[in-house]
Computed example of a mutant assay.
Amino acid sequence: MTATFALRGPALLFCPGNRPDRFAKAVAAADTVILDLEDAVGPDDKAAARTAVVGALADLDPAAVLVRINAPGTPWYDDDVRALSGHPQVALMLPMAARAADVEALAPHPVVALCETARGVLAAPEIAAATGCAGLMWGSEDLVADLGGRAGRAPGGGYRPAVEEARTRILYAARAAGVTPVDTVLVDIDDRATLRSDSAAAVAAGFAAKACIHPAQVAVVREAFRPTDDEVARARAMLAAAEAHSGGVFRLDGRMVDAPLLAHAREVLRQAAP
Score class of each variant (00 low, 15 high):
A49H: 00
A47Q: 12
G139S: 14
A134D: 03
T184L: 06
F23V: 05
G42Q: 07
R234T: 11
G17D: 03
S85I: 06
W138K: 05
R169S: 13
A219I: 02
L92D: 08
A101W: 09
A204F: 01
A63C: 12
M137E: 09
V103E: 01
A113Q: 08
L147Q: 08
A263N: 10
A113T: 08
F5D: 01
E38V: 00
V249R: 12
A242Q: 01
I127G: 00
D258T: 07
T51E: 14
G152W: 00
P161A: 13
A105H: 09
L13Q: 04
D253T: 06
E141G: 10
R236V: 06
T4W: 08
L106M: 14
P108H: 11
M137D: 07
P20C: 11
L252I: 11
A241P: 05
R119W: 05
A201E: 13
G206E: 13
A100C: 11
V90H: 01
V187K: 11
A101P: 04
T131I: 09
P181L: 06
A129L: 08
P10R: 02
R160H: 08
T51S: 14
P20L: 07
D191Y: 02
A162D: 15
A64E: 06
D45H: 05
D198R: 01
M238T: 12
T168Q: 14
R236Y: 02
L13V: 08
D142N: 13
R150Y: 10
A205P: 07
M93Q: 13
L239G: 02
V257A: 07
V187A: 14
G73D: 12
L239I: 08
F14Y: 15
E267G: 04
G158M: 07
G42S: 05
G135P: 04
L94A: 04
E165H: 15
A129T: 07
A219N: 03
R160M: 11
D45Q: 11
K46N: 01
A130F: 06
A83F: 03
H264A: 15
D59G: 12
G254T: 04
L239D: 02
L106S: 05
F14Q: 02
I189D: 05
V257M: 12
A24W: 06
T180R: 11
I170N: 10
A129H: 06
A205V: 11
A202M: 05
Y159K: 09
E165I: 13
C115N: 11
T117C: 11
M137H: 04
P125H: 04
A101T: 15
V81N: 05
L147M: 14
P260D: 13
M137A: 15
A237E: 14
H109F: 10
D78H: 12
D21W: 04
V163F: 09
P88A: 08
T32N: 05
L37F: 05
V33L: 02
D190M: 04
G139F: 11
A83Q: 07
P181S: 14
A97N: 04
A71D: 10
V111C: 09
G9L: 03
M93F: 03
A71E: 14
C115V: 15
D59I: 00
I34K: 00
A52C: 06
A145H: 13
A242N: 01
L57Y: 03
S197D: 15
D59Y: 00
V185Y: 01
D229Q: 13
G42A: 10
R167V: 12
C133V: 10
T2M: 02
A47G: 05
